[in-house]
């Protein structure tokens, strides 16, 4: 579904180079220290940053030269996913029409998406009246109505407590299986990866140092950098 082929870019003085595959319905976790280039990897795929060379293929189509809006990709950030002055329905509705000119049937779709993320009936709330977890659910609902096959998540649940994070990961897991989404999730918590990701890649110094099944990558960590990143925590 998503193929990143020798994608190269520069971040500050660092050279970045990534190659990666994610199939439909699969979730791949991206772990690694701050400044390693995890978020830049997502920005390159979404088209916010321009690659120097290499390709991004989605569903076999080369999207490297496309504007962000034309790429079949949705992204959820850690925060600032919602416009604070627009209510929940409008925030989700932006995924259907970027100038918010919604048809009657769009409202039904928005309500349906909100129901799927467990926020039925909260259409009229403002983001300020929602908890952190609820705000991220709204962002997921917007990703749902956009119906893009690739979902990128940039530390989406980092600001949430452990129980809530579990809950959100379960929701994410359900949604991607239902829709067959290819999910690439940046996270700082190995637990997140264990919970949801079939495969995990470890990014360090602008490249993917280790890649494999989550169990392998987090288990027998042979790379010094990976061991240093994971610390002494068992497993």
């Amino acid at each position: 579904m998503l193929r990143v082929d020798a994608l190269a870019a520069r971040l500050g003085g660092m050279r970045l180079r990534f190659s990666l595959d994610v199939s439909a319905g699969e979730c791949v976790a991206v772990i690694g220290p701050s400044g390693a280039g995890k978020s830049t990897l997502l920005a390159l795929i979404a088209g916010f940053e321009v690659a120097e060379s290499g390709r991004v293929l989605i569903d076999g189509r080369d999207v490297t030269a496309l504007e962000p809006v034309s790429r079949p990709v949705s992204i959820v950030f850690q925060e600032h996913n919602l416009f604070p002055h627009l209510d929940v329905a409008a925030n989700v509705g932006l995924g259907l029409h970027p100038a918010l000119r919604l048809r009657p049937e769009d409202h039904a779709e928005i309500a349906g998406a909100l129901e799927r993320v467990g926020l039925a009936g909260l259409e009229r709330r403002r983001p300020g009246q929602l908890s952190g977890g609820q705000r991220q659910r709204v962002a997921l609902a917007r990703a749902l109505v956009r119906r893009r096959p690739v979902l990128l998540l940039d530390e989406p649940f980092a600001a949430l407590g452990p129980a809530l994070r579990q809950e959100m990961l379960d929701l994410l897991d359900r949604l991607r299986r239902d829709r067959g989404l290819a999910v690439l999730m940046v996270s700082h918590h190995p637990d997140d990866a264990r919970h949801i990701a079939e495969r995990t890649v470890f990014v360090h110094g602008g490249e993917i140092l280790v890649s494999g099944t989550t169990e392998d990558v987090l288990g027998a960590s042979r790379s010094t950098e990976l061991r240093a990143y994971l610390g002494d925590a068992p497993g």
Partner: peptide
């Protein structure tokens, strides 16, 4: 970034 992705 969202604005770019949503195509506003």
């Amino acid at each position: 970034r969202l604005v770019a992705q949503l195509g506003m």
